[in-house]
Amino acid sequence: MGELAIAILGACLAVTLAGIGSAIGVGLAGQASAGVMSEDPEKFGRLLILVGLPGTQGIYGFVAGFLTLMRLGLIGAGDKVVLTFPQAWQVFFACIPVALAGLVSAIHQGKVCAAGVEMTAKQPADSGKAMVMGIFVELYAVLGFVITFLLLFSIQF
């Protein structure tokens, strides 16, 4: 059963690392927007998206973890898959892109978004630009997730 443990470890990493990244990122952006809103509560609408952006990595991680569990047959209607040792590692590594890309990109996206929050505080009209900057960072998390997704579905059991 050691094989299954390795595969589950991969799923766990995808969820936790991406989640940690998102938590840090959202935390930063959230702090910054709280700072802005304590003086200027009307900006809530503009700031909301910026705070939410770094949260997506966590969702990608969660989805990747969920897909892994499904592929392993731990949840859902299908039969439990019996893994060989190489297969277990394949699953593990498939999970890594979303985990690491999510972790790092979420933190940095948090910074970009916090800076964007500050920029919005100064020039409310430019909140759109700040969002675009944040989305650029998002791109790499998405790339990581796509690869994880493709890998998970290309592993043959």
Binding site: Q31, G35, V36, E39
Partner: peptide, 18 residues
């Protein structure tokens, strides 16, 4: 050197600077 603990404070001050 950025100091993330000051995210709230910095944003707060940015509004005031405006």
């Amino acid at each position: 050197v950025e100091d993330k603990r000051y995210a709230y404070a910095t944003a707060y001050i940015r509004v005031l600077e405006n």
